[in-house]
């Protein structure tokens, strides 16, 4: 039942492996050739530069929006701060409710139909409704981000809690572990990898949610910047913003991987040894 996008990890692994195998030169060569072809096509008039901006113009726009006009920073700050805040709040809510529902069979049974209905509804579709209810501004943006963040951690925590290893639970019970002990030492550690997968999805969704909120509100944030640039047919700057989002997306991916290495360390090669060495160090010192 848990939602996961573990498969894209596999793809990034292939990417990194193929980059490591000294094929970088070829990759860069192909990339440059494609870029040059694009540039050439635009200069020869095959591609309308009004709609399909030239690579050189996109690079110039990067310079413009980051350094010369430096107007992107304000919007970036607005988007990123809201994304992180909404992600933390929304996913905390999701994890908390997921754990609550996971432990309580009665609540779980009664909540199930609503969860199914919620799962089928595109959550982002509620955006205009939330904006109308909470007004323009930070509140509604935050609410939208929290809403799109909520679901993946909720479902994953729920399934992590439900799928506790029965034999281990039996062992814990037979040693008369208290409920808190079972929660802290068995259920949570077991569920953490799944929860982290949910968190990663939630952060990606948070960025999309913020963009949709900004498209509708058109006040500030990178989404509204893209919208304004496109409306003015300043496609090069719009693409500079979109590539900025690509970079942010990649940072999110890498950052979540690092966080996963840190929190769910036992999943990774050498992680357990590293942690136990660290523990030993702290234990020896009185």
């Amino acid at each position: 039942m848990a939602v996961q996008d573990a498969t894209s990890e596999a793809l990034v692994d292939t990417l990194e492996r193929s980059l490591r195998n000294r094929r970088i030169a070829k990759h860069v060569g192909i990339f440059l050739t494609l870029t040059l072809l694009w540039e050439l096509g635009s200069r020869m008039g095959w591609l309308d530069p009004l709609f399909y901006p030239r690579p050189s113009n996109i690079i110039r726009s990067f310079w413009l929006i980051y350094f010369q006009n430096a107007n992107v920073w304000f919007h970036l700050y607005s988007t990123i701060s809201l994304v992180i805040l909404g992600w933390v709040l929304g996913s905390m809510l999701g994890i908390g409710l997921g754990a609550l529902v996971g432990f309580n069979t009665v609540i779980r049974r009664f909540l199930k139909p609503y969860v199914i209905v919620l799962e089928a509804t595109p959550r982002i579709a509620v955006a205009p409704l939330l904006i109308a209810a909470l007004g323009f501004g930070v509140n509604s943006k935050l609410a939208i981000i929290m809403l799109v963040c909520f679901f993946a951690p909720f479902i994953n925590t729920l399934s992590g809690v439900i799928n506790v290893n029965e034999e281990r639970l039996e062992l814990f019970r037979s040693m008369r572990a208290s409920k808190t002990q079972i929660l802290r030492k068995l259920v949570l550690p077991d569920a953490i990898p799944v929860i982290m997968a949910g968190e990663r999805l939630a952060l990606t969704a948070a960025l999309s949610g913020a963009l949709v909120a900004e498209f509708i509100q058109r006040d500030k944030g990178i989404g509204s910047l893209i919208l304004v640039y496109t409306r003015n047919l300043n496609m090069a700057s719009a693409f500079a913003c979109i590539f900025t989002l690509t970079i942010i997306g990649f940072l999110i991916f890498k950052g979540m991987e690092k966080l996963d290495h840190y929190i769910a360390y036992w999943k990774y090669e050498g992680g357990r040894e590293r942690m136990s060495a660290k523990r030993k160090r702290t234990m020896v010192e009185p």
Binding site: S8, L207, S208, L211, G223, A238, I242
Partner: peptide
């Protein structure tokens, strides 16, 4: 290219 496409929020392309 697939990875780049994946990490870019597709929604960002809406206006374009």
């Amino acid at each position: 290219y697939a990875v780049v496409l994946n990490v870019t929020p597709g929604i960002a392309l809406t206006p374009v």
